[in-house]
């Protein structure tokens, strides 16, 4: 095509960068935090390490100082029958170098607290709020740990495995009935309405 502008070369070579992380950075990280960091078997995609919750802040700072300047994602996982039950998963990326590293922080059910990393990466601020909202894992030192996706008065943390998929509707039939005022049964002889809906409670559960 004509008129195509010249652009700088895009960052490339992710596979070598991941090999570098696996061979150089992860051993160095393990040596710097003996006992606090356990390399896990490199999974299908990228190197990963397990980090003890009490060492997370120091590990995160160590990694940030060595070039991991983007926090790609913070997510939670609930492995219900297992102990420790929860896991907070951080995906890190170093941008010109294209290094990637996954930190997996196991969280005990009775502790439910990990230190925040939002002072290092501001991106973590919203993502940690989401983990708190959906899993109920607190982030110590977070500036504003409130619900983000669910309404403020919501009870429970929906993405936990013991939270019913239908939420309050599962246990409270009244919840639906209260809202269902436009489905009130109609009297015989009432016009059926434009949709031909005769009224009455909704089917299904």
């Amino acid at each position: 095509m004509s008129g195509r502008r010249k652009y700088p070369q895009a960052y490339a070579g992710g596979a070598e960068a991941l090999a570098h992380v696996r061979d150089e950075i992860v051993p160095a990280l393990e040596a710097a935090f003996p006992g606090g960091v356990t390399p896990l078997v490199p999974s299908f995609d990228q190197p990963q390490v397990q980090v003890a919750p009490d060492r997370l802040a120091a590990v995160a700072r160590w990694l940030k100082d060595r070039g991991f300047n983007m926090l790609v994602d913070v997510g939670g996982v609930d492995y219900l029958p297992r102990t420790p039950r929860y896991e907070v998963v951080y995906h890190l990326l170093a941008l010109p170098q294209l290094w990637r590293l996954r930190l997996r922080v196991p969280v005990e059910e009775d502790e439910l607290e990990v230190p925040t990393v939002s002072d290092l990466w501001p991106a973590a601020e919203a993502a940690e709020r989401e983990v708190w909202d959906l899993f109920g894992i607190r982030f110590a030192g977070h500036p504003n740990l409130t619900r983000i996706l669910m309404p403020d008065d919501w009870v429970g943390h929906p993405l936990r495995k013991d939270y019913p998929i239908q939420g309050p509707r599962a246990s409270l039939p009244a919840f639906a009935a209260e809202r269902n005022r436009y489905h009130a049964p109609k009297l015989p002889g009432d016009p059926p309405g434009t949709a031909g809906w005769p009224g009455g409670a909704k089917g299904g559960n």
Partner: peptide, 19 residues
């Protein structure tokens, strides 16, 4: 942009050729 986790066209508009 990198610190806030911005990606895609919004990041590339800042001159970071990450795709």
């Amino acid at each position: 942009a990198i610190a806030w986790g911005v990606t895609g066209p919004n990041l590339r508009a800042c001159g970071v050729p990450y795709d």
